[in-house]
């Protein structure tokens, strides 16, 4: 448990302290030499480490639900899609954004539901 809590805590601290959160200028790409890439890369490194810790504990019997469930998580690009589809300007961006919202939603909704359907079937032996 400790091996997961500690990296999670570090990760969250970095996210909270990252310039994306602290410095609104960096968020708009306003500053000339942005520190953002470095912070983002740091977050990436921590997340990969944490991912390996978490996933290596998943038993073989749950590997299919793990795939479909983690797949649903990768539908997180929905967030970027929402902003593109709703920004209200260029037509091409709206078209691309709407397509992205649709495909990412398929990924999220389909992924979580089908994982739930599978996990519901895993039962212990009734005594």
């Amino acid at each position: 448990m400790r091996r997961i809590v500690i990296p999670t805590a570090i990760l969250l601290t970095v996210i909270t302290a990252s310039p994306v959160l602290a410095d609104p200028l960096a968020q708009e790409g306003g500053s000339e030499v942005s520190q953002t890439p470095i912070f983002l890369a740091f977050i990436l490194a921590l997340s990969i480490f944490l991912g390996f810790e978490l996933i290596s504990k998943v038993p073989a019997t749950l590997h299919t639900p793990l795939m479909s469930g983690s797949n649903a998580i990768s539908g997180i690009s929905l967030i970027g899609a929402l902003i593109a589809a709703g920004h209200g300007g260029d037509v091409l961006v709206i078209v691309l954004g709407t397509l992205a919202v649709a495909t990412a939603t398929i990924n999220v909704v389909g992924g979580y539901l089908v994982t739930d359907r599978m996990l519901e079937m895993f039962k212990k032996k009734e005594e």
Binding site: I15, L40, I43, S47, G51, I55
Partner: peptide
């Protein structure tokens, strides 16, 4: 980044 990296590692 966090979510993508978790899935990538998996």
């Amino acid at each position: 980044i966090v979510a993508g990296a978790l899935v990538g590692a998996s």
